[in-house]
Simulated scan of single mutants.
Amino acid sequence: MKLVLATSNKGKVKEIQALCKDYEVIPYSELIDEFEIVEDANTFKDNALIKARAVYEALGDKNAIVMADDSGISVDILDGAPGIYSARYGGENANDKDNMNKLMGDIKAKGVESSPAHYTAAIALVSNNFEKSVHGWMYGRALSKARGDGGFGYDPMFIPDGYDKTLGELDDAIKKELSHRSKALSLARIILKTLQ
């Protein structure tokens, strides 16, 4: 079964391909030209659905199954920020490093070295005859200093509960087990199996 991903984020594509080895996983940008999708909803779930619907419509293929992910980190001491704004927290043209540096600076500005935080991943699946969404979470602490250079996004500043290393320091196999995205994908795979 072919799954079209409504993302061109290389980190997400690689992670989803690794977690969905029993499917042919293709970023939509390999099938059609990339286009801007306005994510203007208030929840991860609704933004994931916006992306999946937009790519499904643009593909014009009734047999396509499109998967979209919307995810981010929410930090308690910042009242849940950046939340749905995680990908653009550092500004409009910010990259992963800019976003992480802004978040670490905001935590530090509160006079603390770390704060309870959690990641949320919402995955939407859209096809000709259904729309479904699932969620996964990972809890831990967000730091005011980065450690390690593995992973992507905010990984070097997040320590999962039960560990003393950041996601930037942890082995990929451990990360895969803990990941909010892996938890959501395991639920998405259950839905996909019902389609085969």
Rank of each mutant, 00 (worst) to 15 (best):
D172I: 10
A58N: 13
E169Y: 01
V66M: 10
T166Q: 00
G148K: 01
R141N: 13
A48G: 00
P160E: 06
L103F: 11
E15Y: 04
S182F: 02
C20G: 04
Y119M: 01
A48M: 01
K102I: 06
I123K: 08
G151C: 01
G111Q: 08
V66L: 10
V13I: 15
L59H: 06
R141V: 03
N99V: 11
L49M: 04
D98I: 05
L192D: 09
E39D: 00
A48D: 00
N101D: 15
G83Y: 11
D161R: 10
G80E: 07
D172L: 09
A18Q: 12
S127W: 09
G153H: 01
Y85F: 15
C20Q: 05
A87W: 09
I65D: 10
S86K: 10
F158S: 02
L103Y: 05
N9R: 09
M138L: 14
S182D: 03
M100D: 05
E113A: 13
D79R: 13
N99R: 14
A184Y: 05
N63A: 12
H180I: 03
V4N: 04
S133M: 05
N101K: 12
F158W: 02
Q196I: 13
H118R: 12
Y119L: 04
A173V: 15
I190H: 11
T43C: 01
N99A: 13
M67T: 07
I190A: 15
Y89D: 06
S114K: 13
G90N: 10
A18N: 15
K132W: 07
A146N: 00
A18G: 13
L178S: 02
M104Q: 13
A41Y: 05
M157A: 15
I123N: 03
D40K: 06
G136V: 03
E30N: 08
Y139S: 07
S179N: 03
S8V: 06
M67S: 11
L143N: 04
A87I: 02
L187P: 07
A121R: 03
D155I: 01
K183C: 02
G60C: 10
G80A: 07
Y23D: 06
D76G: 01
G140Y: 06
S186Y: 10
G168K: 00
V112P: 08
V112D: 06
I65T: 15
R189W: 08
V25I: 14
F44Q: 00
S186M: 13
Y28G: 00
G151P: 05
E92R: 13
V13R: 11
T43K: 05
E34K: 09
I73Y: 00
D69N: 12
H180W: 04
G60L: 13
N129Y: 11
H180M: 04
G60D: 14
A58H: 08
